[in-house]
Each structure stands twice: as C-alpha cells, then as structure tokens.
Design a protein around this nucleic acid. Structure first.
Lengths: 132, 132, 132, 132
DNA sequence: GTGGTCTAGACCACG
DNA sequence: GTGGTCTAGACCACC
C-alpha cells in the first residue's frame, strides 16, 4: 500500500488513514471494487494497532467509501461514493469557513486562494490520469 | 460580543472562539486597535471557563491576531495581522487537501468547489462593507 | 432456487439463508414434503461455503422447518412447522420490543406501525395465493 | 440508573445498552435534555468496560438520540429524536420481515401478531404516563 | 473531572 | 483467515 502516516502529527492516526484512502480513490489509485488489505495486515504493514485501522475502516464504511464484504473482505464501494448531498455541502462549507476567514485576515486574495485550490485539483487530475 | 458557540460540537470551544474572533476581524466587526473583553468578563459573558478563553487568547496572540497588554488589556493587533507567509500557505494547503480529495470522490467539480469558496468570500465582503 | 443474499450485509449469510427459506415456506413457494437442494449443490449454486449452508440447514432442522434424511436428502417438514408455542411468543416479543421502543421515540404511531405489519402480511398473502 | 443487562445473552452488551436507553426515552424515564452518566461512571455502575459504554453512546449519538455536550457531558437530545424518515421505515420493515414470515409459518394470525404489538405499545404507554 | 485516542491481548462468530 | 466484541490500561486534550 501507499499509505504514509505522520505518527507525530496532532492529527489522529485513524483520520490520516481515512484521508490517505480517500486520496487514493480521488487519485484513482484505488478503483471501485478494489480490495483493501485486512485490518490485521494493514495494521502490521504500517506498524499500528489493528483497532486504529478498524476505526478508520468503520468510518469509511459509514461514509459509503468502502463496503465490508463477507467473503471478499474490505472493498472500495463498487457503486462509487455517494454523490455530494446537501449535508456534505453544508459540512464542507463550515470546514472552508474558518480557512477563508483566516486567509482574508492574512491578506490572501480570493484569486490567490482559488489558485491554491486549482493547484490541488490539478495535482489530483494529473495523478489520476497516470493511474487510470 | 457576537460570539456564538456550539457546545455540542466536536470542535473544541477554544477553537470555535478563535474562529469567531478571526471571523470578526475578517468581517471588520473588529478593527486593529479595538479592545477585546478581558478573559474574565468574556468567560462570564458567554458562560464558559476562564481557562478556555485564555487558551483561545494565547493562541490568537501567538498567531499575531491580538496583543495582550498587562494593563491596557487585550487589543486587536494595531499593526494588522501578519501577512500570509510560506508556512501559512503550506498549512492552508494541507488543510485544503483532504477537503478537495473528498469533494472529488463525491463528484463535486472544480468549478462547483470554487464557487462555494466565492460564496464564502462574498459573504465576508458584504458583511465587511457594512461594518467598515 | 430463489435465494437472494446480500454479501455486504451485517447479517450473517447463514441467517439470511434461513430467512429466505422460511420466507419461501411462508409464501408457499415451498410446501411440506418438498425437497430442498443438498448442502453441496445449494452451496455451489449460490456460490457460498458448504459450512454456511450446512449451518443454516442445521438450525432450520432444529427449529422444525425441515427434516434431514440421510438418503432422501433435505425436505420441508411434511407435518408442517411446529405451531407458535410460549417460547416462540416470548422470543418474538423480545425481538419486537426494541423495534417498537425505537419507533415510539421516532414518533411512529401504533396505527402506523401496525399498518406496516399489515403491508407485510398482505405481501405474503398475495404471493401465497400465486403459488398455492 | 435503571439499566439491566444480560451478560450471558448472545446480544452484544453495547446493543443491549442502547436498547435500554432508547426504551428509557420511549417510557419517558428519560426526557430531552436529561443528563446521562459519564462513560466511566456508568461502566463502573453496571460493571462493564468503559469502552463498551462508549461504543453504545457513540452509536446513540450517531442516531440522534443523545448529544455529547462539552460542558454538561452526555445528554438526551433536547430537540427530541429525529422523526422516522424513509430510511428508518425501510430498515424497520426489513427487521419486521423475517419476524412476520416466521410467525406465518408457525400459524400466528395477523390479528394475533398485531395484538402482541398492541400489548407492547400499551406497556410503553402505561409506563410513560407514570413518568410523565 | 470529562471524552478521545491508541495500544494490547483475548475470545468468538463467520466463512 | 476474517471482522466483531470485550476487556484493560495508558496518555492527552479539554473544561
């Protein structure tokens, strides 16, 4: 796997793990239906406790990114991720809010901010084409 | 004060408090040099613990948003907030990263995402003109 | 066979299998004395493990739904299913209990709840007439 | 607290705990805004591990029954429980389905079944009036 | 004091 | 072998 964690970060490990997997899907390193390693093997692989992996998996399952298949183990949701609904948009907005207010205070213009977003989108797009 | 907290949120109160004050600055409800309530009075005002307010203030001071004079009390940094530096940009980018990868997975286009950002920027601009 | 399983469900496969067969009897797709596929062939048919089918069969036998002859194979109990006894009623009640308390909390009225039950009963009755 | 668990039951403890609390709300022993014991004290009280209590609380929070308030601790959702939506009805129906098919096989009539439901509803209503 | 996170080790149900 | 559950003990952030 391509998972890379910062064990010293303030960000909880299981959150980082979630992010990494979501990123993997966004970059098309992981495709719908793909199998993910078992909690045990992934835990051993990256040297963390299996419960921590499990917590990440549970939340990803809850959010519709993965399914826990009784025979195949853990797989990326074959039907794709649920589309952005109202709740997601609302939550996204409230995550963006403090970032933008802080940026404004620090003199970042709307254009600069959006360009940063573009950069990140482009990064995903390019990576995505490689793995497609 | 205009502070509004959600005591049931997963977001720590002191973080919410910081955000609210930063928002106040971004919306120009608070101007450089303006006085902020003392730790004690703010705490009493919004019904939270002294330590919580103090923690928020300390971090705002650390980030250059406010100054804490032993006698004059707490004031918004008269010199304005430090401009966005490389460290800030980097941190901003790493905050944006998971939001964008999640959005991509959920089928939000770059345009939609940026439009959401615009909406928020506009919100700040409009509020800003009122209080200017 | 008409068996339909959800391999990603939290419900164990052998339980789903039981339910499907019991449903088949309730809808009169299966009649007393009817033969059921062997453990081996059913497992191959629906692509699951032998043990899983066997476990479902054993429990169905235990509950009096089927008989397992060493030679004739598996048949629906020719004498019909044992009538609801006290133990069954008690167990049913304790299954219903949490469903009803949850429904009450969510504002579902007794009438609405019973109507849902009626809907399901009707569904069985209609299907039953077709296969009778 | 009024919690009573069967440690030997096949039903996981955290599920039983959830049911007990939901029942408490349905019977109006617990009202919106009421405080619930902390994970630690409840765990000590009923002699189980605090993580088990936590798991029950997390799921109740997820389902909107309780809120984790930063100051007051754990409280019954003051806004009441989310009303039965389509998803809940669907899930309820699929829980009812196997119970009803089994009942049909065992010769329980629709009237008998509904009467059992009525009994349970009445039980909640009576208890509810006491604690109101 | 609280809940949140992480680790660790155990047992069981399932397939 | 898998994930699910339960226990236990630790540290930390928050209030």
């Amino acid at each position: 796997m391509f998972i890379q964690l910062e064990l010293e970060s303030a960000e909880p490990i299981y959150i980082q793990l979630q992010h990494q997997i979501i990123e993997g899907i966004a970059k098309k390193k992981l495709h719908p239906g793909d199998a993910l390693p078992s909690v045990r093997s992934l835990a051993a692989d990256i040297g963390i406790n299996l419960h921590t992996v499990n917590k990440a998996y549970q939340q990803l399952k809850q959010d519709g990114f993965i399914l826990i298949h009784r025979q195949k183990g853990v797989v990326i949701n074959p039907d794709g991720v649920p589309k952005a609904d109202k709740a997601f948009r609302k939550q996204l907005k409230s995550s963006l809010h403090p970032l933008i207010s802080n940026s404004i205070c620090r003199g970042l213009t709307e254009e600069e901010f959006k360009e940063m977003c573009s950069d990140i989108f482009t990064e995903f797009k390019e990576e995505g084409e490689i793995h497609e």
